[in-house]
Design a protein around this nucleic acid. Sequence first.
DNA 1: TTACGCAGTAAGCATTTACTTACTTAAGGT
DNA 2: ACCTTAAGTAAGTAAATGCTTACTGCGTAA
Lengths: 195, 195
Amino acid sequence: MIRKSTEIRQAQIKKAVLDIISEEGLHSISSRNVAKRVGITDGAIFRHFKSKPAILKSIMDDVKSGLLADLRAIASDDGNPESRLYRFLSTNIKYLMQNRGIAILLYSEAAHLNYKELRNQLHSVLSEQKSLISKIIRDGMKGGNWKKSVNIDDAAILYMGILIIFNVKLFMAGKDVAVDNYCKRMFNLMEEVLK
Amino acid sequence: MIRKSTEIRQAQIKKAVLDIISEEGLHSISSRNVAKRVGITDGAIFRHFKSKPAILKSIMDDVKSGLLADLRAIASDDGNPESRLYRFLSTNIKYLMQNRGIAILLYSEAAHLNYKELRNQLHSVLSEQKSLISKIIRDGMKGGNWKKSVNIDDAAILYMGILIIFNVKLFMAGKDVAVDNYCKRMFNLMEEVLK
DNA sequence: TTACGCAGTAAGCATTTACTTACTTAAGGT
DNA sequence: ACCTTAAGTAAGTAAATGCTTACTGCGTAA
């Protein structure tokens, strides 16, 4: 019986949850299953998190301070809009590729979860993503890089569609999705619409 | 205690399942919950369907003989590709609008369900949809309506993205999504890419 | 009028779930 | 070396799950 601090265990528990989601699906994140992966009993889980939704909430907080912080930085940096769009897209896609559990949480299942507060958090993550990409597009139109006739909201929808479809591809194709290739093709698709 | 035939009860049970999915989410379709909506006890459910997955399978069969049959007809009728694309899209979208439980099943949750056979059926519905839209696009390229430089697969992905995003909008916006408007805007978006 | 098939019920099955409780013991500061 | 703190366990809980069982009684065809 090796003992570890709550801080370490919380990280292990969150990792176990995400691994299970990507390997077995959301329905498999039971206390017992998670505990087994961490190497403790299910009772111990509740020493480190007060409830199961609290684990998921903590994961969403990580997304906010990780991915969203990066995206925020890109959306407002001093590159030109094309460059920002491309980096935004590929940062986003690569994050989803490397954090498949989170991808599933964000884009397929969490929306229909039981936990109300979690759903709100999901909402806010998605809508911030959308407003960041809208900003880049708006900048590009203002700067004359792209035509102004396209509805910004439609273009943002297209962007979200690209993310979701990537998630579906990940799910169906397994490990090996050609990320760089996908990013380039989808960047071109967006430019096709915007130019 | 009113008695009804198995045929009628099966239809009622399927309707109850879809209503529950759209109102409460997939996690709520327990035997007891479904039975309550139908107005019978949970034991009676298993007189009309041999198992819970069998209910979902029967629903997928309905989708195949309903929506998919309509889409197949449109993809091969004698209208021009632009007209077929528009009617294909709006038939598809309107069906999802009017069958929200099925929309959720198809585009968000079922992919991660436990039941293997159901997942296969889902797969086949989605990939037939994709191959039908690919046919329309190919016809339009052959006929000179659209340029041939666009990757057909990318365009089909875009189409699927439009459907999925519609599903997300449905989920977030509640009842009132402007269907006709959405269809027109997304049709234009696709033409923007294809022309 | 009787008898039988089939839709229904109520109760209970084994299992799983999230979570709690009573207790034990490892570990670190003093 | 001791002693407090907190990480851990084992064994429970109540509720929910899918499904089965033993039985009841309606309606139709003989």
